[in-house]
């Protein structure tokens, strides 16, 4: 890549345009040098797609919570970009337990201590957690 070929396609979503990253390119004398880049169309598209997939899944989960199929834990887990195995580590439970808690019926039986742990992992209040979808 030559210095004049370094793409400058702004990543204009989710504050992506706040950062210009450094790329290495060859100048006209054949020497490598660092050039800042706003982004590249191909890469922006891939990042955008990954975020769109997150949004779609989140919207789907929100619906399921509202229908009473899943518990709010499922919603906030997706919102925090976590998976059951990662969330389990944050709340000090096994993955299978977290998966159980994602069912509405089991969620309602959770103690305030466990709810507080989930709320802490999601960086929200217990109130926000329990009232979601109601």
């Amino acid at each position: 890549m030559k210095t004049n070929e370094v793409p400058q396609d702004p990543k204009n979503f989710r504050e992506g345009d706040k950062v210009n990253k450094l790329l290495y390119a060859v100048d006209k004398n054949g020497n490598y040098t660092g050039v800042t880049s706003a982004g590249w169309e191909a890469e922006n598209f891939a990042t955008k797609q990954a975020w769109d997939a997150v949004d779609e899944e989140l919207a789907m989960t929100a619906e399921q919570v509202k229908r009473g199929e899943l518990s709010p834990i499922a919603y906030y887990m997706h919102k925090c970009l976590m998976e059951p195995s990662l969330l389990a580590k944050y709340v000090g439970k096994w993955t299978w337990q977290v998966k159980r808690h994602m069912k509405k019926a089991n969620f309602e039986k959770l103690s305030s201590d466990v709810l507080a742990r989930y709320a802490k992992a999601f960086n929200i209040s217990v109130e926000e957690l329990t009232s979601f979808g109601k």
């Binding site: 890549m1 990253k21 790329l23 891939a46 997939a53």
Partner: peptide, 27 residues
Amino acid sequence: SLYLGNIIRMQEEIGTGGAGFRFLYAA
């Protein structure tokens, strides 16, 4: 599409200097 996207991100998203570290190594 998501799988392909992930390869592109690993190769080009912030932190590789372009072309999945190939330009950095050439430098």
